[in-house]
Amino acid sequence: MIGAAFPVDDWQFWVVTLAALGALAFIVWRSLGKRLLRKRSKGGSKAAPLTVEGKPVGKG
């Protein structure tokens, strides 16, 4: 049944499935992962907003 629904014996099936999983992972990583990574890192961009008493100005 599974073989008919998902041609697991066909190596091309695994290639396209990996491509789809990679695409999905890319969407998730670009949407969420980068933000998480940025929070952990200490630098990166050239411009930074000023802060007032440790809080970013512009959130008010």
Partner: peptide, 9 residues
Amino acid sequence: LAFSIVVWW
């Protein structure tokens, strides 16, 4: 592009 691949699958 990524979404197109996922939707195709």
